[in-house]
């Protein structure tokens, strides 16, 4: 047994990139938030789909979005839900609505980051940042309150 102080282990489940999601993760790895969009009716879809759930069009494309969003809601998770994250309980999960389209949600979290709880209000402005999480090159889009307040 090691007598050293143990550090919390963060083992996020790593996305298994597939045909539909490849461009999303490639974009994130390049610091770009891209979302699948229907070529016929221009509706955004997330998670990506093989056909448009609005108009039925099969041709979908990825387009860059602004990265601007509104905080839809958030929760502090105390329960053991993901095995690889038990060490970092409690942690904050949030969901944001992209400004491009109502109910276009992306998730985010504050695992291993400072939590500006006082800035968390439903509807507050959020902005994307990118967080590398694996040696395999996966980069997670994350959302932080915007504008970022810096200490002077």
């Amino acid at each position: 047994m090691s007598s050293e102080i143990s550090h919390p282990v963060v083992r996020r489940p790593i996305p298994e990139v597939d045909e539909l999601s490849r461009e999303f993760w490639e974009g994130a790895a390049n610091g770009l938030l891209v979302i699948q969009r229907c070529t016929a009716c221009s509706r955004f879809h997330h998670p990506p789909r093989s056909l448009c759930t609005d108009c039925g069009e099969t041709k979908q494309t990825y387009v860059p979005v602004s990265g601007e969003a509104r905080l839809w809601s958030w929760t502090v998770t105390h329960h053991k839900i993901v095995a690889g994250l038990i060490d970092v309980i409690p942690y904050i999960c949030l969901t944001v609505e992209l400004v491009e389209q109502p109910r276009l949600f992306l998730m985010s979290d504050f695992i291993g980051d400072d939590v500006p709880l006082e800035q968390f209000k439903v509807g507050c402005a959020m902005r994307v940042i990118f967080e590398p999480v694996s040696e395999g090159g996966i980069v997670l889009p994350q959302f932080r309150p915007a504008p970022v307040v810096t200490a002077s």
Binding site: R12, P13, P15, V82, L106, M107, S108
Partner: peptide, 23 residues
């Protein structure tokens, strides 16, 4: 408990954030 170290399908957009439960 979500024990997998990978996230497939729609879970690839939730599980990495530790947020896979209906609760």
């Amino acid at each position: 408990l979500y024990e997998s170290q990978t996230a497939i399908g729609d879970a690839q957009f939730t599980a990495p954030y530790g947020c896979v439960s209906v609760i």
